[in-house]
Design a protein around this nucleic acid. Sequence first.
RNA 1: GCCGAAGUGGCGGAAUGGCAGACGCGAUGGAUUCAAAAUCCAUUGGGGUAACACCCGUGUGGGUUCGACUCCCACCUUCGGCACCA
Length: 834
Amino acid sequence: MTTTGKSRSGAEGGESRGNVDRYTPADIEKKWQTKWEADGIYQAPDHVEGKENYFSLVMFPYPSGDIHMGHWFQYSGSDAYARFKRMQGYNVLHPQGFDSFGLPAENAAIERGADPREWTYSNIENSRRQFREMGASYDWSRELVTSDPDYYKWNQYWFLQFYKNGLAYRENGQANWCPKDQTTLANEQVKDGACERCGTAVTRRAMPQWFFAITKYADELLEMDSLDWPEKIKTMQRNWIGRSTGTTIGFDVSEFAPGEKIETFTTRIDTVFGVTFVVLAPEHPLIEKLTQPDHKAAVDAYVENAARETEIDRTSTEREKTGVATGAHCINPLNGERIPVLVGDYVLASYGTGAVMGVPAHDARDFVFAKKYDLEIRVVVSPPDWDGREFEDAWIPAGTQVNSGEFNGMSSIDGKEAIADKIESNGWGTRTITYHLRDWLISRQRYWGTPIPIVYCDDCGTVPVPEHELPVRLPDKVRFDSDGRSPLTKDTSFLNTECPDCGKPAKRETDTLDTFVCSSWYHLRFASPNPDEDPLEVDQVSAWVPVAAYQGGAEHAVMHLLYSRFFNKALRDLKFVEFDEPYTKLTNQGMLTKDGGKISKRSNPLPPDPVVEKHGADTLRCYLMFLGPWDQGGDWSDSGINGIKRWLSRIWDVAQRDKSKLGASGSEDAERGLARIAHATTQRVLADMDVFKFNTSIAALMEFTTALMRSYESGDVSAASWRAGIDRLLLHTAPLAPHIAEELWQRTGHTGSIHLELNPAFDESLIAMDTITLAVQVQGKLRDQIEVPADIAQDAAIEAAKEAPNVMRHLEGMLIVKEIYVPGRLINIVVRPA
RNA sequence: GCCGAAGUGGCGGAAUGGCAGACGCGAUGGAUUCAAAAUCCAUUGGGGUAACACCCGUGUGGGUUCGACUCCCACCUUCGGCACCA
């Protein structure tokens, strides 16, 4: 038989492997991409006899120009998973589309004079090309583009349904404003007080805005037990919703504002006897009424200053707490005390009631505030060993009620309930639940989005556009001025319309919808892509949704993923869908970095196209999946990619060897050895692929590839079992490296696409070994190894272990205390000196 | 500050109570070549030995266990999230 060296030599190699060409990805990848598309092999019919439907969805991209390396990482893994599920025998829906509304298109317009529509659609064209080059198995017949009127029409439709059912409303209030992007933002889109998109410090601005009533679902959104999601994401959602139970209590101010009370919310009603002041947020409506003439100048200045400050300044925990007295006082209903009312910007208008009762002894913030303004610090919950001395810090934990009238001596845990009871029975307040979650602000003062289908009429007021008039189309060829305002506010042909009710001239709403509205229901449209007259076809939706496996980045934890859940619940209550949750299982791909840092076009570039050109799409796909566990991300390095290229080349080589060099039957040992690794490989790959562990799947396949080469070179295996091994290798490689697997599948004489085949099965009995190696430890330290029959009994194994030479040495002069036998793995002999 | 994840060779990582370092990169030596590239073979945690033996080794310190990368406690570092939420 040929030795390795000989089989590699030019003359013989050609002979033994039959004029095999070198692995050149460029020669095969485009060919298969075209063929797959022409044959429509990835199109998912709504029903296939004998197959279960499986919706594997990956978050669709914003078409910013390029499918970058991070996208490759995300989409290679999710595509491999969808392909794997298809080969598991499921009827898999794996669609793709474009989340194509959004600010970058407008910024391109403003900065470069590009037309947002042209800019967007040419980017989409480019992205489609790149997706194709990736060899992704998308069902392109279901592609959706959210900036197409036949998609955003339904955004408008949903808005109208929500509006009719009290889930969409317009309200004048303080909104987060990004001065750079010239638009308001939802709370979720403000990170560290800055615009999530551009990083500009967010300010507050009072203006009427549209909201979706997500808070109505706050409690239901907290129920996540049924979701197979990463715990981390669930925790983030729970924290964001931020449910806290407490008591609202009113502090009478009728002395200064007849009939008025300051409502405050507290989770620590047990400390209410320790209230020595009340602080209002600078935006609190009662400030004007309460401020006394001699304090007015100071209060006005303070409030004005607070309004000017950015969210970053306002919410910094570092900065000193400030406040100013109003001159007014209020009454603590529990003890009738008269206490000062101040204004302070550490109190947030947007949370609770916008006013807090100040209990410096038992709240860290109130404590520093009281110290600074020399306000009384009265202990009402005593620490266990308190000697009556002044506090150096607020005491937050529970304790014993003191200075609390009739509640003295009670534990503060009981006090909390007893005091709340008293407050409720006297009508001073009520037990209340508050949430950090705010209603979803959906108005954007931008052009490139879904127009909100509302008309304002002088006579009829706010009038929804009738459904049959949808879509309200976004005008084309608009003008962008340097003032940064949305072109819609100046486009008279858009702006001026007739009132749907009375027919008189009226004005259109010029705000557009937050683009997260588009992604809140796109999975439904993928399932039901075609209806014209209705948003969805119920049968199609129920055939596919909820999404069985959803993949995407963790950065969407409290934005897209929360909005989408809300949308689902709202649509359920409006009888459009029947299920409670949109995405059953969620997997977060990790982040791909380069040199440990974020990949960025400017500072840390890593364009995929040159890599594809040099190594091919299959190599890049596999390399990205080989970097590490997919859900943990990875760090790109140029050097490692050769290893994957070598592996694929070895597959290319081994699969095309001339099997006629092998005999009709092989040696028993070699046959069993090959069967063992073949079946063991399948076992490993099936288990790992199912949990997105592509890296270890590839490692298993690399080992199998080597084993196949060795079997061939040894010449001891039959042509048939070697051939079967090659098939198995190709089938497992298919989801990871679809082009080379398909090419070799054809070259090895199969007809039909490998991607329509099923995963091979494995037989556990073939994986089992006849003889096994047992590790033998003495005192838990490895001392020797013994070869024993796999079915050896415990006693026999231990006897054999004691006879191993190196074990004997360590047993000498020792008394055996204990013998531990782990079947198939090891023996541990515990001894002590005799 | 709070919550969460992670820390393993020169590097990416594997092993989740049972032989640490699978697989790959890189490196070293060899084969092939006029030469190089490519490819193939071998070695590759540290110390130690002629070779064995043996000792050390999964961020640090303690603990549980016959046995710990794995479980528990404390700490350090890195990354992610939240952060005046009353």
